[in-house]
Design a protein around this nucleic acid. Structure first.
Length: 892
RNA sequence: GCACGGAUAGCUCAGUGGUAGAGCGGCUGUCUUACACACAGUUGGUCGGGAGUUCGAAUCUCUCUCCGUGUACCA
């Protein structure tokens, strides 16, 4: 007998197996393997990141796919790594500098030393999340861990840049971009979040220069009035037609500015007149260009007013200046009114502050292979799951805009462009740079720095982080790996980065990896929310720490609990109770295994003598194989998890084990042997099916149950999935279904028996005697004994001639009438009432059924089997009614 | 504004035309020698509202309400 603790303790077990798997190289992919390939690249978390629930969900799914693929005999590469996350990482180190005494900025340190500091920080503190992923049990090939700025990856980024530049797809220009005044960098359109905001709408009087009146102009941004260069009205607006061509006085830094006509102005909005401020508004900029207007920039890069002509505002923060400017205008008597106004303000996803539209010199990319990328998803070359994301994806591609790829950062891939020293100043101001400049030798664009660096000046900017991560599926792999594992099989990621990452990877794949798609399937996970439906976030403090959850419930418990509630189509509301379920399940599994270990070895002699209950559970196990394969094939992870849960807890533990316990104590050897054999078979197959989602506990039990020995002591994760074909091999299908019918009847009868006991307030542990007066199904000694065990009875007597004393509680079962003789303890009246109640229920069902079958339309239109089913049901109720009525008369 | 998703038991969720389900929670028993992280029993629902299609609707169609997400414009 094995001495084991009563409760499963995951911590030690999980650490043990994690290190053993790694030491034995179980996760390592062999590109020379003859096995078919299966590959996933991890969505690289930020190197500054710590594990959150989204990662747990995402990586558990990837681990399930990877581990299952290994069991299916595939050579698996799950390639891990981290993203350098330009802004986040740079900000992290700048924060450290600001804490110093005296505080420093990156400018105090200087570019070269600052970048060195970030590397130091990264090497010391970065990649915590990698350790955390290991604690979750992720079976990544850690020997192949990549970083988006490492020595292998960085040249790829530069190479791609140079190629796209030569192709004319990357260009530089002075454009209106999204400017983050806190981070002082340009951002892409995707990094701006339009946010509903309570603002104020100011209506201001612009006096006509000829003194003939005034024009009311509404604005939310009075602090930019000094940069107004015109007022526009719609050419079709009858109210203002006569004013076009006249001039008004700009209220701050007074100056005559023209009234122009432009169709962009909406007649119905506000006053119908719009101030044109080309330097500080995207559409105003366009209007300005169209009409040849001047551009007056009155904001600094960090969002302060730069307008010496207006000393009252000069140097003020843009929001302080907003209030101040209104005071000034009001003082001049030019403020008409101030109204509350709800509008959408673009906020920086990075710093959270309102974006400034700003004219600046930036690098842009015209996306390559847009059509290939759109077609691939449209025609199913790349499958999105759930499929509806394909629509979102297609919509984005249709309206795709050039991507601003330069960032005014120091941490990241520096733009691989050099300007000839003597011309650098001029070139950096040039709005157009192209291959001609390269030919002239004025600029140098390449993955390798110029041979004579002293003659060149490199571009100051760095690339958007996503400009490196869009190469992730292939830039992470060496030649051998590419040959074996590219394109990758599945990508598992959140729908929030469908544009940032997924779409761009598809384009990059077609353009840079031999025209091949980067992956075959994309599985978009749900987003984990809190119980109020809010996104998990640090600031709300509603995000549980996965490591804490692992400590309390085990990694297996966390994985199982989360997957059980992760629907495929919608978001998950996270409830810690569900994780507790995962832990409880692990404990159940552990105890079931412990129970088996207490029974000793199965013998080879005598040959197992299967009872219906054995055949039943083995047949269900066979079905479980199919359910699991089907669910995983369809990426239905909650179905997979739920099927595993209910098979084990309900079918195996609650029913089967309870029905066979006596075999182990006092059964004849052949029956005992059949039970041990069946338990072993179920556990062996089941552990393998469960292993992808609960890798640690299954590995531990595989070992302690002795299954590993039969497989050369291989860890379970390296053992091929047992074939369901071996289950009940050679047994006739009709015999199997006969056994299953008997077993179902047994379990149902046991339920009825328990109900009877409960109804008569007999404690579960009270030993009673049941009498079965058999009906249609045969009840042999085996079934009778198991029934007694399941019902918590001393014995079950099968007696066809049994005459129940008046008032004996009875129930109808698939095995016939079931009696619970209590020797006159029962009140006849109470019993009569009980049966009467049952009869009422049955009468209702009969009425329903009769109504249905009496409806000729139902009988004519419904499929034959549905009608037959209904008839059967009715017959069933009728016979039950007859029996109950007979009992009732017997009572009298 | 447009698009997409969701609304089923107190909670978290299954259930795509044929007798409304699971787990948790609640309540009642039980330390029955694998498991009290458990066992047995039990209580919970006009399937968001309305209309339609159908013999039959949680399921299909339309519409409304509420919640969520994406996207566009906003002076």
């Amino acid at each position: 007998m094995t001495e084991l603790p009563k409760a499963y303790e995951p911590t030690v077990v999980e650490e043990k197996w994690q290190s053993r798997w790694m030491n034995e190289g179980c996760f390592h992919a062999d590109p020379h393997s003859a096995k078919p390939a299966y590959s996933i690249v991890i969505p690289p978390p930020n190197v500054t990141g710590v594990l959150h629930m989204g990662h747990v969900l995402n990586n558990t799914i990837q681990d399930i796919l990877a581990r299952r693929a290994r069991q299916e005999g595939k050579e698996v590469l799950w390639l891990p790594g981290t993203d350098h996350a330009g802004i986040a990482t740079q900000a992290r180190v700048e924060k450290e500098l600001a804490k110093e005494n005296p505080p420093r900025t990156r400018y105090d340190v200087g570019r070269e030393d600052f970048v060195k500091m970030v590397w130091e920080w990264k090497n010391k503190h970065g990649g915590i999340i990698i350790k955390q992923l290991k604690k979750l049990g992720c079976s990544c090939d850690w020997e192949r861990e990549r970083f988006t700025m490492d020595e292998v990856y960085a040249p790829e980024v530069a190479r791609v840049f140079a190629e796209l530049f030569k192709e004319g797809l990357i260009y530089r220009g002075r454009r209106m971009v999204n400017w983050d005044p806190v981070l002082c960098t340009a951002l892409s359109d995707e990094e701006v979040e339009m946010t509903p905001t309570h603002s104020k709408l100011y209506t201001i009087r612009y006096k006509l220069a000829d003194g003939s009146g005034q024009l009311l102009v509404s604005t939310t941004r009075p602090e930019t009035i000094m940069a107004d260069v015109a007022v526009a009205v719609n050419p079709k607006d009858p109210r203002f037609g006569h004013l076009v061509g006249k001039t008004v006085i700009r209220p701050l830094v007074e100056k005559e500015i023209p009234i122009i006509a432009d169709e962009h102005v909406e007649i119905d909005f506000g006053t119908g007149a719009l101030k044109i401020t080309p330097a500080h508004d995207r559409t105003d900029f366009e209007v300005g260009m169209k009409n040849g207007l001047e551009i007056i920039d009155i904001l600094t890069a960090d969002g302060h007013i730069n307008c010496p002509d207006c000393p009252e505002l000069h140097g003020l923060d843009r929001f302080v200046a907003r209030d101040k400017s209104i005071e000034l205008i009001d003082a001049k008597g030019l403020l008409e009114k101030v109204e509350a106004y709800d509008n959408n303000v673009g906020l920086s996803q990075r710093s959270g502050v309102p974006i400034e539209p700003r004219l600046s010199m930036q690098w842009f990319l015209k996306y390559p292979c847009v059509k290939e990328a759109a077609d691939a998803v449209a025609n199913g070359d790349i499958v999105f799951r759930p499929a509806r994301w394909a629509k979102t994806y297609a919509h984005w591609l249709e309206g795709i805009q050039d991507w601003c790829i330069s960032r005014q950062l120091w941490w990241g891939h520096r733009i691989p462009v050099w300007y000839r020293k003597d011309k650098a100043a001029a070139l950096q101001e040039a709005t157009k740079l192209d291959a001609a400049d390269m030919a002239a030798g004025d600029i140098y664009v390449s993955a390798t720095p110029p041979a004579d660096p002293e003659n060149w000046v490199q571009d100051e900017d760095a690339l958007d982080t996503w400009f490196s991560s869009w190469l992730w599926p292939f830039a992470t792999m060496d030649k051998e790996c590419l040959a074996k594992f590219y394109p990758t099989s599945d990508l598992v990621t959140g729908p929030d980065i469908i544009f940032f990452w997924v779409a761009r990877m598809i384009m990059a794949g077609y353009r840079f990896a031999d025209g091949k798609k980067p992956f075959g399937n994309v599985f978009f996970t749900s987003i984990v929310r809190d119980l109020l439906g809010r996104k998990m976030s640090k600031s709300l403090g509603n995000s549980p720490d996965p490591l804490d959850l692992i400590a309390r419930y085990g990694a297996d418990g966390l994985r199982f609990g989360l997957m059980r509630i992760a629907p495929t189509g919608t978001d998950v509301k996270f409830d810690e109770k569900q994780i507790e379920e995962g832990k409880n399940f692990a404990n159940k599994l552990y105890n079931a295994a412990r129970f088996r270990m207490m029974q000793g070895e199965a013998t080879t002699e005598p040959a197992p003598k299967f009872a219906p209950v054995h055949i039943d559970i083995l047949s269900k196990l066979k079905e479980l194989h199919a359910t699991v394969a089907d669910a995983l094939g369809k990426y239905e992870f909650n179905t997979y998890t739920q099927a595993l849960y209910s098979f084990f807890w309900n079918e195996y533990c609650s029913l089967f084990l309870e029905a066979v316990k006596n075999d182990l104590r006092e059964g004849e050897p052949a029956v005992k042997n059949a039970t041990l054999f069946t338990m072993d078979t179920v556990l062996r197959h089941y552990l393998a099916l469960l292993a992808p989602i609960m890798p640690h506990i299954t590995e531990e039990l595989w070992q302690s149950l002795g299954f590993a020995k039969k497989h050369n002591d291989l860890p379970l994760m390296s053992t091929p999935l047992p074939c369901p074909c071996s289950l009940l091999g050679g047994m006739d299908e009709t015999d199997i279904s006969k056994a299953r019918a008997l077993t179902t009847a047994l379990y149902e009868t046991a339920n009825r028996a328990r109900n009877l006991k409960a109804e008569y307030n007999l404690a579960t542990n009270k030993n009673v005697k049941f009498v079965v007066k058999p009906g249609a199904l045969p009840v042999d000694a085996d079934l009778a004994a198991r029934l007694a065990l399941l019902a918590g009875a001393k014995e079950t007597v099968v007696d066809a001639a049994y005459e129940a004393p008046k008032g004996t509680p009875t129930a109808l079962t698939p095995f016939g009438e079931l009696f619970l003789p209590l020797e006159g303890l029962v009140d006849v009246e109470a019993e009569r009432a009980r049966i009467g109640k049952q009869l009422e229920k049955i009468d209702k069902e009969i009425m329903k059924s009769n109504a249905k079958l009496g409806n000729s339309k139902f009988v004519d239109h419904a499929p034959a089997e549905v009608v037959a089913q209904e008839r059967e049901r009715l017959a069933d109720w009728e016979s039950k009614k007859a029996q109950l009525t007979a009992m009732l008369t017997a009572l009298a």
